[in-house]
């Protein structure tokens, strides 16, 4: 398994090696490398963690520990569009829960899940800092604000067709 992933993604692993070489002499380089590796692979599968462990000569358990501690690191691939529903206080008091429920109903997945066709990942996120527009959702880099549940279908449909 592990070797086949290595062979199938030769170019990406070469790029990973370049990243590791660039950062390994910095103080405390692990998170810097994990951020870059996730950008490259879309997630942090165990093969990537193993590769980093060997290159940096630190135990795989340490890397797994860090990768699972932080919510932005993910071990599973995500959908093409990640929908983050802001659950900050300002959004919450202005009805973010209803927006999240509506999204969940519309796409048919629970928060934290990815749709079977890998189009959508639904997440309840921490404050996005756009409190002036509460309640807010973010689909990849697009922000939608001042939402009510009836807006949801139209927004989701825009991405379905793409």
């Amino acid at each position: 398994m592990s070797t086949s992933i290595l062979q199938d993604n030769k170019e990406k692993f070469a790029e990973l090696q370049r990243i590791i070489d660039e950062y390994k002499d910095k103080e405390g380089p692990l998170m810097l490398i994990l951020h870059k590796a996730q950008e490259l692979f879309g997630c942090l599968p165990v093969e990537v963690q193993e590769y980093i462990a060997e290159s940096l000569d630190i135990p795989l358990t340490d890397i797994y520990g860090v990768a699972t501690f932080y919510s932005q690191f993910t071990l599973q691939p995500k959908g093409k569009y990640t929908i983050g529903v802001c659950m900050g206080t300002a959004c919450y008091v202005k009805g973010a829960q209803a927006v999240l429920d509506e999204l969940s109903k519309e796409i048919g997945i629970k928060p934290g899940e990815t749709s079977e066709d890998f189009v959508f990942t639904l997440e309840a996120t921490r404050c996005l800092g756009a409190c002036g527009l509460a309640p807010v959702i973010m689909i990849n880099d697009d922000v939608y604000g001042r939402l009510v549940p009836s807006d949801i279908k139209g927004i989701v449909d825009k991405y379905r067709g793409r």
Partner: peptide, 19 residues
Amino acid sequence: AGAFVCGEETALMASIEGM
């Protein structure tokens, strides 16, 4: 990388160290 506790000073420093 999305961990609220890292706002606490000793946790923040551990995170700077990559842990």
